[in-house]
Amino acid sequence: MEILISILIFIMIIAALISLEIKDLLSSVVSLAAVGLILTLLFLLLQAPDVAIVQFVVEILSLVILIRATIIRDDSVYDRKYDRKSFIYRISALFCVIIFLIFVIISLKNLPPFGTKIYNKLADYYIKNTINDTGAVDIVAAIILNYRAYDTLGEATVLFTAILGAVLVLRKIGRLRNER
């Protein structure tokens, strides 16, 4: 089981690298979709069907939006040679990654090994009392909409604000240009 999960994550890494390094934008978006669909498979293997459904649907919608956005624009401009500057960027990226990696290796000792999660008080309470408290069978739905519904209200506000921003940015014609 752990070996299967590790192999799938390794394929995800390879697909992510391909989608970053390939020249054509459309191929890069399709490769990104491979990352998301393998992620859906992993959620199913890790016993999270709720999250798997949402991830699958969101991946398809974002794929449609990204392809609509990239397919019309001509993409011959990038990947020009920036010799010295590009070298400095790469070195600084490597530096960042190494610093983060040191912190990760230090903090991994405090995590439980993979597959041996011990319940804390909160998860224990939710598992024992969900049916008696709410009457729902799905524990995740009970947490989102009954125990922590206030959290979901805030989330709905964030979503509303982000979509409002997108609609405002894509407004049909600017007011100034109309007057001219």
Binding site: D50, V51, V54, Q55, V58, L61, S62, I65, L66, V140, I144, D151, T152, E155, V158, L159, A162, I163, G165, A166, V169
Partner: peptide, 13 residues
């Protein structure tokens, strides 16, 4: 679950 949907709307923005 909520983080994924927020990610989609941020991508649209």
């Amino acid at each position: 679950l909520t983080s994924i949907v927020i990610g989609l709307s941020v991508t649209i923005l």
